[in-house]
């Protein structure tokens, strides 16, 4: 495993749980700086991250297969079948095929990553994910040099998915990344939160996490990954291209056509919590800005 984003200590190995809840906030800042090696931590990445509670993370979700409301996923997702699970990897790879979850994770260490999570609706959370780097999983299938994009697809289980039965948007939900985004060390496939298996409403058993992009890019409950040389269609872009671009990088200077993206409300602050300023690339500017060098981010929103 690459371990490009390395913590010296896993907090829960050495510290009792009550204490590591505080320690992990510190580690998050340190870890973000570790991505770029010796580069000093920027103001943003040095900022302490206070993870949301599991209750908050698993009770306020967008998972449209289960309905429009934030509480629909927690209400309905328990019926989703997540075991056994496999992902078919196809397209421009050397070893296409159906990989079981165990095969995908075999030989890879599950790391903990505490990331900011910013929804396009201008709310945010901090989530302690467990998972592996997407790059390492893609390497198992052998990415061919002609591949330029990665497409993802969510499971469709009409029997247990009211939103799918109601056809509220076209399913399966699909998302995509440019290959360099997909292979970036921050991009992960997450299988758990807080050391527990991924709650179903959060995209069990395995989901994408791209912390510098709006949340809808981080597709849940993945059953298919396709390597391709063309930019793949993505669900929200198809629904409303003017409002949801292919890139959808978190960017406080480019507003959503209907609302401001300059600030956000962190979930869990209660009735009297202040908005906080949204950070460029959600606070991961040092790590990812180079991916977009020379691009007009107003044009490629």
């Amino acid at each position: 495993m690459a371990h490009r984003w390395k913590n010296d200590l896993t907090p829960n190995e050495v510290t009792p749980k009550g204490l590591w809840l505080n320690r992990r906030a510190m580690m998050a800042g340190l870890g973000a700086a570790a991505v770029t090696g010796a580069m000093p931590a920027s103001r943003a990445s040095a900022q302490a991250l206070e993870p949301n509670t599991l209750e908050e993370i698993s009770s306020y979700n967008n998972f449209y297969e289960f309905g429009w409301n934030k509480t629909d996923p927690a209400d309905h997702a328990h019926a989703m079948v997540t075991s056994p699970w496999s992902i078919s990897i196809d397209g421009m790879v050397d070893r296409p095929g159906t990989y079981t979850l165990e095969q995908l994770l075999e030989g890879l260490d599950i790391e903990e990553r505490i990331y900011r999570f910013r929804c396009v609706e201008a709310w945010s959370m901090v989530v302690p994910w467990n998972g592996v780097e997407l790059a390492d999983v893609l390497a198992k299938a052998g990415v061919q040099s002609s591949a330029r994009f990665v497409a993802f697809e969510t499971t469709v289980q009409p029997d247990v998915m009211p939103g799918v039965r109601g056809r509220i948007i076209p399913f399966p939900y699909v998302e995509g990344l440019r290959l360099d985004e997909a292979q970036h060390p921050l991009t992960m496939l997450a299988t758990g939160i807080y050391g527990d298996p991924m709650p179903k409403q959060n995209g069990a058993p395995i989901r994408l996490v791209v912390p510098w992009k709006y949340g809808f890019k981080s597709i849940k409950s993945i059953v298919r990954i396709t390597l391709t040389d063309e930019q793949p269609p993505t669900t929200w872009n198809r629904l409303n291209a003017r409002e949801y671009g292919f890139y959808s990088n978190v960017n406080p200077t480019v507003d959503h056509p209907r609302w401001s993206q300059a600030s956000e409300r962190k979930i869990g602050g209660g009735l009297f919590a202040r908005r906080q300023d949204t950070l460029m690339f959600n606070g991961y500017e040092d790590q990812v800005a180079s991916l977009y060098a020379g691009m007009d981010l107003r044009e490629d929103y």
């Binding site: 949301n52 209750e55 908050e56 009770s59 306020y60 934030k70 509480t71 709310w123 409300r265 979930i267 869990g268 209660g270 009735l271 919590a273």
Partner: peptide, 18 residues
Amino acid sequence: LFYLGLTGGLGPEPINAL
């Protein structure tokens, strides 16, 4: 409703919910 917002009865994003 305001009381629910204060005490968590409107979920973890009470401002928007209210």
